[in-house]
Nucleic acid binder design. Structure first.
Lengths: 178, 178
DNA sequence: CAATGGACCGTCCATCGTGGACTGTCAAGG
DNA sequence: CCTTGACAGTCCACGATGGACGGTCCATTG
């Protein structure tokens, strides 16, 4: 019973208790959000497949068409199988870099604008992560709980450093050098 | 004439001269590869759309079914428009983090294995980037040419630091804590 | 009390992205 | 001459994204 990463993630989330598709989409956003996005459409499609394979059990339709999904025994097995499988490669797509690669044809003022907007977005994210880290530490979070968050922290720190070194004052975006 | 990022990238690549779809796919891999992947299927699909909109001109079919694509005047305009538009958000998908988020159900030995394999892959990438940087500097590359490469460098450096701080000896993957 | 806005729940669709299988053509070298 | 491999394009299945849409239930507030 091989499942793809997104389906496996749903199985993983279902360990915390049965849930509707809607609820699973929310859990996914809350718990995986920044390093593994899952859309609502995605959730329902995968859930259908998982049900077909008997990896989740679907309950009766309740109020507001709610259908509760429960992890089955074979679902748990499939989840563990996936967990031990080799993870795929990272996917990183940076629209700003694409523009920078072609920036020779872009008005310098507009370029500076784009850069500063993007930088601000990253700064905001970093601030958010720092708050989350502080909150987690305050409530006794372990390193184990913080690994993924720390990845985000390191990432945003690195990106900001890159902005300042390459695109900041003295960098080619603000003039002077070639 | 609004175009998506991938189509725009093709227009950008076509500034370097007319090309077949095959050739464009190669240019894309060589010049954008690591921060904006474009597959062959993608290239042909987008090229069809661009031709329909008159943004590229398709020449006669030559040897080996080769069809040369040329950037048109309106194609150039569309490219500039896209260039000045607001870039979308970064997409970052890290399969390893997904596993770490669920790692409580994974055999610790297997976990260490996964982590070390992934770390090695990143180390290799970093080494490659460093070589590219040295080569670029040696042949008189400007900061402008290096911006995107430097992004990759900062990224890989940060990721490796993260590996060593969070998952290395003393981190929860190798035992002791958490 | 009524109504109304907002959370909840699911469906559908268009478009984009990825990778592999497949067919065929031409050129170069053994 | 003939085989290998780069060149060139097609097709398909699947995964991912985001928006539009339809409906239901509940709490607040007018």
């Amino acid at each position: 019973m091989a499942v793809n990463a997104t389906a496996a993630a749903l199985l993983g989330l279902l360990r915390d208790g049965a849930a509707s598709g809607y609820e699973l989409a929310q859990r996914a956003t809350a718990e995986l959000g920044d390093f593994w996005t899952v859309t609502r459409s995605q959730v329902y499609r995968e859930l259908t497949g998982l049900a077909d394979q008997g990896l989740v059990e679907v309950g009766q339709t309740g109020a507001r068409s709610r259908r509760e999904h429960r992890l089955t025994a074979s679902g748990r097995v499939a989840f563990r199988e996936w967990l031990a499988a080799e993870p795929g490669a990272d996917v990183v797509r940076i629209p700003l870099l694409l523009r920078l690669a072609f920036a020779d044809e872009l008005d310098p003022a507009r370029l500076r604008e784009l850069v500063s907007t993007q930088r601000a977005a990253h700064a905001e994210r970093l601030a958010r992560y720092r708050e989350l880290e502080a909150a987690a530490l305050a409530t006794g979070g372990t390193d184990r709980d913080l690994v993924t968050l720390r990845f985000g922290l390191r990432y945003e720190e690195a990106v900001l450093r890159w902005f300042d070194e390459e695109l900041g004052p003295g960098g080619w975006v603000s003039g002077r050098r070639g």
